[in-house]
Design a protein around this nucleic acid. Structure first.
Length: 624
DNA sequence: GTCTTTGTAAACAGGT
DNA sequence: GACCTGTTTACAAAGA
């Protein structure tokens, strides 16, 4: 098994958010599911064909889960049955238990038991749906919408009845009384439905907004259910504009959300989110199906029951279908989009922090360039510096996407580190670290022409002195940032799919996740506060010429000298060689050898570093 | 069509 | 020799 297959699966299984995991089943629910699966097998050849022919999925079918979850009524009996099978916890849970045995036993054999169980499930489902619809009706629906709801409810009931009848038509069973009962009930429901439809068509004409484009005909409830409008607020990602009514919303939509870069970028990200969620939902459904097959087989084995079309033949099916996830799949972002997104104002820091859980569990490529992500990794670290391996770890721990094809993106990271002048390599006795020159980074982002490459001859002009004390301009922030809206959208979609969304407090998430994502970063603080170091690439004290030294931020240089001086004085004959220095550090003359662990020695050295920092700051103050 | 930016692949060197 | 790290080059894709 290569990484391509292992990565996303692992992420889904181990996702702390639990968003991808189906709700746990208790024994009763498991029984119901097993029975439903069995009933589905009795449903005829269609059900068997459905289970045996998974590879071909039309785009419509891929959208089915979301649309079904959103819709108030399932469009088909089969869909209604499969959708309701996970049975999430709901106020009707007690209702299910109460309606378990509403009818007398027809026959004391297993078949009758299953039929009764199936019927009780249907009744429980109907009651659950009725409860839900009643609740929704009280909350949101006007009288017209209530009529439509009633219509939908009746259709639901008919569908459920049809479903139950189809399940009851087992080849070797004929509980006639039950079928007659359901048939009569169905006829009654059809009559009620027809009456409601007549009433609705006579008294509730189609309503059309005055400003609606030609041909747009909207039902009253559909206006309220516009995906981008709800509760008087525009639901466009990152908008949240207030709109008194639907017409005001339409005006706002026309005026505020035109076809520009930002809207296009937001739409593309939204497409990614939807695609990813659909993929995730499909995986979870496949997994559930495999689990049910497995559990059913286990139960059959335990009960020594051999079904005529039992799990032996079903088990020969290929199992859950895995869509091959390619780098060039729709989930990934096309070439220039990250650049466009950044130009459009998407903030890397906010986006990553607010959707950390999403990126951690979803195989979505983050919509930012490698350079931005590397910078983010570095500035998230406590000392604003990371080794290459720590950057790797950050990518892997932060993004599910970077848990596969490691060779590719690692090479890209190395290339970016070397390529961009904004990344500064600092080498000391403990290894080499990478830091960010934010001034250079901002300069790079604002360059409209020409890309500063490290191996290009430096253009004549400003030397690094211009970067002394340079501070990055504040990152573009918005109180109603796109990431917040993205999270809300995700949350809504997850709720629609009956999936739990990890809504963690941002601050908590930041801290906790930092602990997890940086747990490997055991190196204590060494260079805290020196993120804006220099415009020089490789800051190696031994290689510094006089000119180079001018290009280095004085505090770093002073600190370096300070630390080396302390080491020199402590050991006396300190070698200039890095390798020798690290070996000599273990000599008995060093006062830092009293610290057995390297961490303690680091800590002691960091104290010197703090003193050096204070000295440097005092010098700067005195210069001013 | 040209230029820029970005991503990717690959070769190469030096170190461990 | 394998692997890691870092540099450099080349090329393709996408957008301006």
């Amino acid at each position: 098994m290569n990484e391509v297959n292992r990565g996303p699966e692992t992420a889904l299984n181990t996702s702390p958010g639990g968003a991808a995991k189906p709700p746990p089943l208790n024994s009763f629910e498991l029984d119901r599911c097993l029975d439903r699966e069995e009933a589905g097998r009795w449903g005829g050849d269609a059900a068997r064909r459905r289970r045996r022919s998974p590879p071909r999925r039309s785009p419509t079918a891929e959208n089915e889960p979301l649309s079904l979850a959103r819709a108030s009524a399932p469009t088909s009996p089969t869909a209604g049955s499969t959708q309701s099978s996970p049975a999430p916890a709901s106020p009707s849970g007690s209702t299910n238990a109460g309606a378990r045995s509403p009818l007398p036993l027809v026959a004391p054999d297993l078949l009758a038991m299953q039929l009764l169980d199936q019927h009780s499930q249907l009744q429980a489902l109907m009651k659950q749906r009725l409860f839900h619809q009643h609740h929704m009706q009280k909350q949101h629906m006007s009288s017209e919408a209530a009529k439509r709801l009633e219509q939908s409810r009746l259709q639901d009931q008919i569908s459920l009845n049809l479903l139950s009848q189809s399940h009851l038509q087992a080849p070797d069973s004929s509980p006639g009384s039950l079928q007659q009962q359901l048939g009569a009930q169905q006829q009654q429901l059809v009559q009620q439905l027809q009456a409601v439809q007549r009433q609705y068509l006579m008294h509730a004409p189609l309503s059309v907004p005055p400003n609606a484009p030609p041909g747009l005909m909207l039902w009253g409830s559909e206006i309220e259910e516009h995906p981008l409008y709800g509760r008087g607020v525009c639901k466009w990602p990152g908008c949240d504009a207030l709109a008194e009514d639907f017409q005001a919303f339409l005006k706002h939509l026309e005026a505020a959300h035109t076809l520009d870069d930002r809207s296009a970028a937001q739409a593309r990200v939204q497409m990614q989110v939807v695609a990813q969620l659909e993929l995730q939902l499909r995986r979870e459904r496949d997994r559930l199906a495999a689990m049910m097959r497995h559990l059913h087989a286990a139960r059959d084995t335990a009960h020594h029951h051999k079904m005529p079309h039992g799990p032996a033949s079903e088990g020969a099916s290929p199992g859950p279908v895995r869509r091959r996830v390619s780098d060039k799949s729709g989930v990934a972002i096309a070439g220039g989009l990250p650049y466009m997104l950044e130009r459009a104002g998407l903030d890397v820091q906010q986006e990553i922090q607010r959707n950390r859980e999403f990126y951690k569990s979803a195989d979505v490529r983050p919509p930012f360039t490698y350079a931005s992500l590397i910078r983010q990794a570095i500035i998230e670290s406590p000392d604003k510096q990371l080794t290459l391996n720590e950057i790797y770890n950050w990518f892997q721990s932060t993004f599910c996407y970077f848990r596969r094809n490691a060779a590719t993106w690692k090479n890209a990271i190395r290339t970016n580190l070397s390529l961009h002048k904004c990344f500064v390599r600092y080498e000391d006795d403990f290894g080499s670290f990478w830091m960010v020159d934010d001034a250079e980074f901002v300069k790079r982002r604002h360059l409209s022409r020409g890309r500063p490459r490290k191996y290009e001859p430096a253009p004549p002009g400003p030397n690094a002195q211009q970067f002394l004390g340079a501070q990055s301009p504040p990152m573009m922030t918005s109180p109603h940032g796109y990431s917040e809206a993205l999270k809300r959208n995700l949350q809504g979609m997850m709720e629609d799919c009956n999936l739990a969304y990890m809504s963690t407090d941002d601050h908590m998430m930041q801290n906790d996740d930092y602990q997890s994502s940086h747990e490997d970063y055991s190196r204590p603080q060494m260079m805290n506060g020196y993120g804006n170091s220099s415009s020089s690439h490789d800051v190696k004290a031994e290689d510094l010429s006089a000119n180079d030294a001018q290009d280095i931020k004085p505090n770093i240089y002073a600190l370096k000298n300070e630390m080396q001086a302390s080491d020199y004085t402590s050991k006396g004959d300190y070698s200039n060689s890095t390798k020798e220095s690290s070996s000599n550090r273990s000599s008995e003359t060093s006062p830092y050898n009293e610290y057995a662990r390297p961490e303690d020695r680091y800590r002691a050295l960091s104290h010197i570093k703090d003193e050096a920092e204070n000295l440097s700051l005092n010098e700067q103050r005195s210069d001013k």
